[in-house]
Amino acid sequence: MLLGISLGTNDLSRAGAFYDRLLGTVGMVRTMEEDDEIGYGSPGGPSCFWILKPFDQQPATRGNGTQVTFKAADNDGVEEFYRTALVLGGVDEGTPGYRYRPRYFGAYCRDLDGNKLHVMYEPD
């Protein structure tokens, strides 16, 4: 069972400001903070997503083929996540729209360190 995922950053305070606002669009909040990492999760819940300065003290790099997916509450939430990422300095990797299946709505972007993010909504 997967407990969570971490992405590296070269500027923790800048990445924290980015993710504080971005993850707020999908209902996530900062749940913990240490010198070299920040955790996010549901309000009052445990951390499940972390941004961190690499333990080996080498520069953080993005993974080719790595992607983190977040679930929005609805299609508007997908669009808000995507717009927020771009306003905060993220980069477009695929505008919001229907993909894969008739009711799957998603968008793609990259964070300030080049990590690929996907946000989606598909009704149950």
Rank of each mutant, 00 (worst) to 15 (best):
S13Q: 14
S47G: 11
F18K: 10
S47Q: 09
R30D: 08
E37F: 11
D35V: 10
L52A: 06
V91C: 12
G27S: 08
F49N: 00
Q58L: 04
R103H: 13
L7D: 00
G16Q: 09
N115E: 05
G77Q: 02
H118V: 14
A17V: 10
S6Q: 00
S6H: 00
G106L: 09
R83M: 07
T95A: 14
M32G: 14
Y121Q: 07
G24H: 10
N75W: 13
G65E: 00
E79R: 14
G16K: 06
A85H: 04
R30H: 06
D20H: 11
G27W: 01
E34S: 08
D11P: 06
F55I: 12
C109P: 01
G89V: 10
G4L: 01
V68K: 00
D111L: 00
S42M: 14
R103I: 07
I51Q: 11
P96I: 03
I5K: 02
E79W: 06
F55V: 10
G45E: 11
K71E: 15
N10C: 10
D124E: 12
R103W: 06
T31G: 08
G77F: 03
E93L: 05
D124S: 11
L3R: 15
R101C: 01
R30K: 15
Q58P: 00
G45Q: 09
S13C: 09
V68H: 02
C48A: 14
G44V: 05
P54T: 03
R14N: 05
R30L: 10
Y104M: 10
L22R: 04
A107S: 02
I51G: 09
L52S: 02
L52W: 01
G45N: 08
T31N: 09
L2S: 07
V91P: 08
F55T: 03
E37V: 06
F18W: 08
R62N: 01
D35C: 09
L23T: 10
D76I: 08
G8D: 04
T84D: 11
K71H: 12
D11K: 06
V119K: 07
G65A: 03
V68R: 02
D113H: 06
A73N: 14
M1V: 12
N115Q: 12
G97F: 13
C109S: 07
K53P: 01
F49T: 03
R21S: 14
V29N: 11
E93A: 12
T66C: 07
E34G: 06
V78A: 12
G45P: 03
R21T: 15
I51C: 09
G114T: 00
